[in-house]
Design a binder for these strands. Structure first.
Lengths: 340, 340
DNA sequence: CGGAACTATACATACGTATGCAATCGCGCT
DNA sequence: AGCGCGATTGCATACGTATGTATAGTTCCG
């Protein structure tokens, strides 16, 4: 038989009717143990598997969740944010645990992504992932809500009050990083990183940094703050800027690891010892942080909890109707760049 | 209307029959331009999208491809191979370009993955991704072939002659790396890396290295070869091993970047200048390679071509029936660790 | 002016599953 | 013995789309 077997084939082989096969396989209690065993044996024998399309059509659901990555329009070639990639693995596993498949898609912020997944029954729910200007999302998210689409979003709950959100507590991460440097006895702590409203998570890291300093009676010094996007060059440049300002500092909190590594290189080029002359803490815990020399202290977002929380929240929303936003703690990882 | 609209709703609104709607939307030539326009307008107005389950059921295909990552049983927590992740992005885009969705799944080598995707019409074809012992695959791949499942595999075509394969030319990559070091005038070139038959790609890098040396009349010195899995510690340990052997070398080809960075740190710890005393070339071109100090020369696999080739090959197999295995060139990226 | 050759549309149906409802059977209770 | 009830199972049907076939309308040519 070249044709793939259907539930009718199983029914014939097991000597029952097609509906009974369906019931036996889905575990309905109204099938006798003996019949169920016969059906399962027959299914096994013919290598039968339920046709997902037919099943989905009948049940009006797909058993699939969609993951939408938003890429900045310019970044086509660059890699995806490593933190997201790390979450990806955990989301896939969590989905599998719930019996869902996971569909991946990349989207431009500008595109019509909001009409294409749950609408076409490709997916029962959507996970939205992407840094960037959250304001741009607003109208489309509202459309999702209007149509009753199930979705959860990664990001800062405070920024945008639409739908369920899971995010890291970036403020606390920034606070912990600065607090740690203060505990080391450093008092002239610089901040390097983007802090514009368009990137809320960086903004929050900055806020946490400020709170820590103030709680120690230190007013953040604007001369010790340098904007730098997450790139090695920007990190180097930021250190150069500080030098140009003749700024005096004994520690740096850099709100992204790649910039932190750039800063590290620049500092080493200036002959400043790490951590003795300047203690350094980054943010992200990229693989490269461990590989840096000295290994870079950093603030780690919990990608496992993040991924699992997103999926749980989404599945909760699909089943029960409601689930709740949450903020996950970041964890300071102390390595040699800020040791002793 | 809370119910999502069907093609019948569109038909009613456009004043035609349901089949005409279907034909209009799929672009059949037997629909007049005027009718098509009316249908499209109606569809637009009701936010209609084709139900994927129903469409798939009728057409007996899903419009989805499945991507199966094989994770080594131990590696649950560790990240996925970064090269694969990089391919992922390109595969997603390529799929989208062909009108397919991409489903992601992780699998243990031991599991029954071979029965679950095309069989259940979740996917029209499968991409298999994973380092590891290819021999373990064999019986399951043969089953896939038996059932006429469409699949392509990432890996070395030479190892296993089942199905269509896309892979990097690791041998050439190893050759280029060694050749580059030879061109620099180095003659005592060490090799650090796994070279066991269970990991064919590492084996091939070793072969290429040997070929390059021999083509310059140099016989590979077993004392200059150290096994090291891809990890920072293993790289460090390998350098220590060379020291213990009092081995004399002026260059190292390390067949993974992480180990290469470990080796770099160990060498710097020994006070050996890079590249002056020891030139260093890695393999993979991880982000961390650029971030190393000095930036690490390495051999880059073309993740874009790789991902696109896999998808093209798979879609080719699905449509035309046949497509062909191919081997993609690696590219040497010279940075400061082996400059001048 | 009749019929052939098209064109554009409608009709009927099948894809494979899941589920409401009816039917059957066995068994205990009065 | 009669009746009812629970436990199983079968029957009928609907999910929404795509496509083979038939039909109505149009044009064109002899």
């Amino acid at each position: 038989m070249q044709r793939r077997p259907t539930s009718f084939d199983i029914a014939a082989l097991a000597g029952v009717s097609q509906p009974t096969v369906s019931r036996a396989l889905t575990g309905s209690r109204s099938v006798s143990a003996e019949t169920r065993a016969r059906v399962l044996a027959a299914a096994e024998q013919l290598h039968y598997t339920v046709d997902k399309n037919a099943s989905g059509l009948r049940k009006q659901r797909s058993g699939t969740l969609a993951l939408l990555f938003f890429e900045e329009n310019s970044t086509e070639d660059a890699g995806i944010n490593p933190f997201y990639l790390s979450m990806l693995g955990h989301m896939v596993r969590k989905c599998a645990g719930h019996g869902y498949d996971l569909l991946i898609s990349f989207q431009q912020l500008s595109a019509d992504w909001h009409v294409d997944f749950e609408d076409s029954r490709k997916a029962d729910g959507i996970v939205l992932l992407g840094y960037g200007d959250y304001l741009e999302y607003t109208p489309k998210l509202e459309q999702l809500v209007d149509r009753g689409t199930h979705f959860v979003r990664w990001g800062s709950a405070s920024e945008l009050n639409i739908g369920v959100t899971v995010g890291s507590d970036n403020e606390q991460g920034g606070y912990d990083a600065a607090e740690h440097l203060l505990d080391l006895g450093r008092s002239r702590i610089g901040f390097i990183g983007t802090a514009t409203p368009a990137y809320p998570e960086f903004m929050e890291r900055w806020s946490g940094y400020c709170r820590a300093l103030r709680s120690h009676g230190i007013e953040p010094d604007p001369r010790l703050r340098v904007d730098a996007e997450p790139s090695e060059e920007a990190g180097r440049a930021a250190v150069a800027t500080l030098s140009r300002r003749s700024a005096d500092y004994d520690a740096l909190f850099v709100s992204s690891d790649v910039a932190a590594i750039g800063a590290m290189h620049a500092l080493q080029g200036l002959g400043r010892a790490i951590p003795e002359d300047v203690a350094l803490v980054g943010f992200d815990d990229l693989p490269a942080a461990t590989l840096a020399s000295p290994p870079l202290s950093t603030v780690k977002q919990d990608s496992r909890r993040a991924g699992e929380a997103l999926i749980d929240a989404l599945i909760g929303a699909i089943n029960d109707g409601r689930s709740v936003s949450q903020s996950l703690p970041c964890k300071l990882v102390v390595r040699e760049s800020s040791a002793g």
